[in-house]
């Protein structure tokens, strides 16, 4: 079973848990996410890109929208690394963004929002900033 990989984790596997910082919502089963790839998760009206970087044994979540042309597409992008920084490349124009900081690595000013991910017993949770709900 995967262990929690990032930040604080919820204590149980209920659909949604709120701690000091985050509201953790249940996204999907870990098996629903392709190895070294991403899926798009619906959270209320928001779209979150969720990546299982199997090769690094890590999970990442970011906004699904690429800020360059405002396209809901990052979850369909290829992931990889640049000098060991994990990144995702937008399918449209191959702008790349750090999966950790959200910073655009292709030299543009735009950045994306990243979210913490927690995996407990094969269930994947994404943490939304608590006041954002």
């Amino acid at each position: 079973m995967e262990e929690s990989t990032k930040n604080t984790s919820p204590n149980s596997s209920k659909p949604s848990i709120t701690d000091d910082k985050y509201t953790w919502f249940f996204a999907c089963d870990s098996a629903d996410v392709p190895d070294n790839g991403g899926v798009c998760v619906k959270y209320n009206e928001d779209q979150i890109a969720l990546f299982h970087f199997t090769r690094r044994g890590e999970w990442y979540a970011t906004q699904n929208e690429c800020p360059h042309r405002k396209q809901m597409a990052l979850s369909r992008g290829m992931i990889g690394s640049q000098n060991d920084e994990p990144k995702v490349a937008c399918p449209f124009h191959k702008k790349t963004f750090s999966l950790i900081t959200g910073e655009c690595l292709s030299g543009d000013e735009c950045a994306i929002t990243t979210y913490p991910v927690s995996v407990v017993n094969g269930k994947v949770y994404i943490g939304m900033p608590a006041n954002n709900n």
């Binding site: 970087f53 992008g77 290829m78 990889g80 490349a89």
Partner: peptide, 10 residues
């Protein structure tokens, strides 16, 4: 080496 990228993967 490393984890690949959008150039070498395709």
């Amino acid at each position: 080496k490393g984890d690949g990228c959008e150039i070498c993967k395709p």
